[in-house]
Design a protein around this nucleic acid. Structure first.
Lengths: 221, 221
DNA sequence: GTCTATATAATGATAGAC
DNA sequence: GTCTATCATTATATAGAC
């Protein structure tokens, strides 16, 4: 923000967007050289603009996170049904314009780190709000611990996507639409079944677990 | 297997076990030097035994996978209740003897690759068998697609663990027991709630999704 | 079997010309 | 702003002595 030349910003932004694409395509072990090649510039220029690879990565993180927050905020009003999939169904509509961003998010979740944690916190907050609203409306079952459930559901749905990607490695990491569509195709029915009915027919299991917890550890409340 | 000296095996095994520990503790980017240091030998010796870092990694994979299959097979008879957690509750009993193996598995799942895929296939097969049995017994609800549900449940439960580790990074990756215990502590109640009752109170959601699928794509059956 | 050099390759980062 | 060297570091892997 302290750069003297006004043209800087445009180049920085272009470089940053290219970096996001390459990170999404090749993973975070992608080299500065690869990014520079993809942008049609020299490796030195990339470092010249961002100081280091780490700072470049950090700027990609910030940008992706910021845009994701914007998009999520905009789509929060829309549908309350598909949130069991972490907003994937909503995402599929706009997938073509910012596919790299979505894949970048997947890779961040997989790689861990601070940015992933912030993203998850954000998603968990949204989920909790949505669930609480659903409980009031009557579409969602109440939970003994709304906060814990929301976090668990986010972990479950995001995690299922991560593991699915391991089970079925995308032939082309550049095609976010294809990745998400094939995932939804595989899980839509079982996920809905489980979300609506659960898996266990024996309801006493819940009592068993609650009793187990009561005696092994002090309850969180 | 074509080594001339009989003593080789002991050293190889010791080196391999050390590598598993270091990979578990530091991740797969751990260097040959670190592994050699941990084993109290020179980096050259490690390469001398395994040919390359990649082959060492491969041997660690094979060993961990083989032992995991053995353990799972042995514990399949025991309890049918906790399988929603991917056998974690069963695992917690023997956690002290082979903690590194468990953490190695987590890191493999996170890193992806062939070994993770084999592991997931194996888990999915076990889960499907357990679920089918549960359906007959009456403890598990039937599904429209048992195979897809089993795979989804494995992805969900393993993935939830992966994401939880990102949300709450372990202070000490060497302490598998602590990692798993804190995870179970966080999710036991919400996971059981969801497994028993599901989340959605509105049962019509399932019909909506099934109808959606009917018109957007040919059913898998 | 094991160690001590050392070769080799890749990568992030710097310096200075243009 | 951008490029062309070039450096410094790090890691795997090799070679040969013991």
């Amino acid at each position: 923000m302290r750069t003297t030349h006004a043209d800087d910003r445009t180049t920085r932004a272009r470089l940053r967007d290219t970096a996001i694409e390459v990170f999404a395509r090749d993973g975070f072990s992608a080299t500065v050289r690869t990014i520079a090649d993809a942008a049609g510039v020299s490796p030195g220029l990339v470092i010249h603009h961002f100081g280091s690879k780490e700072k470049l990565r950090s700027e990609c993180d910030d940008h992706v996170l910021r845009r994701t927050r914007e998009v999520n905020e905009a789509s929060l009003d829309v549908g309350a049904g598909p949130q069991a999939f972490g907003g994937i169904l909503t995402t599929l509509d706009t997938i073509d314009e910012d596919g790299p961003r979505i894949v970048y998010l997947i890779r961040s979740l997989q790689a861990g780190g601070d940015m992933a944690r912030q993203l998850l916190d954000h998603l968990a907050g949204d989920a909790e709000a949505t669930f609480r609203h659903g409980v009031v409306t009557g579409t969602v079952r109440p939970s003994r611990d709304e906060r814990a459930r929301a976090r668990y559901m986010v972990a479950q749905s995001m995690g299922a996507l991560l593991v699915d990607v391991v089970m079925h490695p995308p032939a082309d990491w550049s095609d976010a639409g294809s990745i998400l569509r094939s995932y939804v195709d595989r899980v839509l029915v079982p996920a809905t079944e489980v979300a609506v009915h659960g898996v266990m027919a024996d309801e006493s299991l819940l009592d068993t677990v609650l009793a187990y917890r009561e005696e092994h550890d002090a309850p969180t409340n």
